[in-house]
Write a protein that binds this DNA or RNA. Structure first.
Ligand SMILES: [Zn+2]
Ligand SMILES: [Zn+2]
Ligand SMILES: [Zn+2]
Ligand SMILES: [Zn+2]
Lengths: 146, 146
DNA sequence: CCTAATGTCTCTAGCAACTATAGCTTCAAG
DNA sequence: CTTGAAGCTATAGTTGCTAGAGACATTAGG
């Protein structure tokens, strides 16, 4: 049995994050020692590693919640799990498209600036006027982290 | 003079967002009509368009705050503004690198799944075990939106 | 066995950048 | 003059944590 600190170390998750996951019901309530400290076994360890890995792949906690409850029913069809993964892929692809456009615009701005006064700065000028942009980079379809 | 609704419409910014920008000091306090409603002129319109455009390019409000105060001093060197833009470009590039790796992993997962039971689902399997991944996609260097 | 250092406990508040709600007042059209 | 849209303030919620306060538990050294 691991204490919360050892578990966090093993899984690469900070201690308050583990408590947070328990609080929102993503991890089950942990066993407690005589002195009321949380104790974890291998199952909890695996579940936390799953969460960590899915987070690293950009899944939201909501998606992870669904994936976890699916993985608790091994005899069911995996169609739902695959759909979640495909949705995540689509999300990443749309962010990639947007970021690629942003990168192009930022490069243009930076390259075009001759480096004089603010009054002549291409960066400031372009920021004030989207019509100077080469691409239509607006309207982020999604506004989620990572 | 525009009301807040007209301004928002013109700049593509929602009304509560404009009030929020004023509250955090990104926009100056607006003039008020006899009935205490906000009124905006062309300068406010330009400032809001600048903010909107910079947000669309992924700059944080903090960076925008700095850019705005720089643009208020047209005779100074634009080095600081350029540095902010270059930092933003670097940020976008690092997110792009990470998202590219994520996309590759997600594609692998989705493609490898044969679509049977959860117990045999490659998606669930890979999520539980990073060593099945082809790339090292972990440790997001930055955790900022978009 | 005692003490000091570290770890853990709960609870609360804070971060970015908004968005939503409630309960009011003001304005513009008919 | 009335009605409905738009505006006002203030507060709370969103996501995924992170940081702090103050109290209790555990462990290592002397
Ligand atoms: Zn410049
Ligand atoms: Zn633009
Ligand atoms: Zn599958
Ligand atoms: Zn992996």
């Amino acid at each position: 049995m691991l204490t919360i600190g050892k578990l966090g170390e093993a899984a690469g998750v900070k201690v308050p994050t583990i408590r947070y996951y328990e609080q929102i019901g993503l991890l089950p309530e942990a066993e407690r020692s005589a002195g009321n400290q949380r104790l974890y076994g291998r199952k909890a360890m695996e579940r936390l590693a799953f969460i960590r890995h899915a987070r690293d792949l950009g899944f939201t906690l909501e998606a992870i919640r669904d994936l976890l409850s699916l993985s608790d029913r091994p005899d069911q069809s995996c169609a739902a799990a695959d759909a979640i993964a495909r949705a995540q892929l689509a999300e990443i692809e749309s962010r990639l498209a947007r970021l690629t456009a942003l990168k192009a615009e930022l490069e243009r701005m930076v390259v075009q600036c001759a480096g004089g006064k603010i009054a002549d700065c291409r960066v400031i000028e372009v920021l004030g006027d989207h019509s100077l942009c080469a691409t239509d980079h607006r309207y982020p379809e999604s506004e989620v982290p990572s």
